[in-house]
Design a protein around this nucleic acid. Structure first.
Lengths: 132, 132
DNA sequence: CTACACCTTCCCATCGTGGGAAGGTCAAGC
DNA sequence: GCTTGACCTTCCCACGATGGGAAGGTGTAG
């Protein structure tokens, strides 16, 4: 199976598949006579794993560890849970931070009449700069 | 006022002050005899504006536009509001996306017993990969 | 006079992703 | 057969925002 077909089946772009191979996240697949990469079921499965993990926001290094655990039939699930929990806490912290930004912005946007006149509470707030 | 003092007063690192100057976000300040950058009230005010806008998550290019509007006494507040609203909507979309990730992760983490045994719903989910 | 804290410019790294050039290969239609 | 278009290969470069650090100059305090 060509890299393009593998990309289509896994939702991971051909560019990224080559990149994951280059950084050692994926084993280099077999090559055909014409030097094309040849993907089988095992590689497709790993690519889907990576794609799903990326969609959950895991970093490449986290995925590297998760893949190793996945391949290891004797892993302690404690390890997997620890990584997932760490990432979850990271996500939640970032969500809270962004919600604070969004809340402040919502207030400013709703206070701004938004017409042809130049006076603007948004710029006033940014320019005040000391209320942080 | 030296760049270090300006950084201390505005919460923008010296590194980033030089960077903002290099990309044309800030006018190059006056230089003293020893070639040190010399910042006055106006520059400090602009740096605070930038710092506050960054803390609200605006991109450099958005800040470039906001700064131009800020400097223009005749700006229509409509323009400012449009940019802020666009950024707000972007933020909200990203928050929703991250909340979906966090929700899925929370479920997986709470389903994983997290001990020495190898069976793990988190890896099962990542490996299934087709329920996306 | 020496030590230390600051300044300057310049280059490189991060993280994940994509663009594109230059060249090789394959399959379908004429 | 030959052309055309869609693939594939490697390689380099870009983003956005930030930081690290080297190599060299300057200012100040003990």
């Amino acid at each position: 199976m060509n890299i393009g077909a593998a990309a289509g089946m896994t939702g991971v772009s051909a560019k990224m598949i080559r990149h994951y191979e280059a950084i050692g996240l994926l084993q280099p697949p077999a090559r055909r006579d014409n030097d094309y990469r040849d993907y089988g079921d095992r590689e497709i499965h790993e690519l889907r794993f990576i794609g799903r993990a990326r969609r959950l926001g895991f970093s490449i290094e986290e995925i590297r560890t998760l893949l190793a655990l996945w391949r290891d039939g004797d892993r302690p699930s404690r390890e997997v849970r620890r990584i997932a929990l760490g990432h979850l806490e990271d996500l939640e912290a970032r969500i809270i931070e962004m919600q604070a930004m969004a809340g402040a912005l919502r207030r400013l946007v709703s206070d701004c009449h938004g017409d042809a006149r130049p006076d603007c509470p948004i710029l006033d707030d940014l320019g005040a700069g000391c209320r942080d």
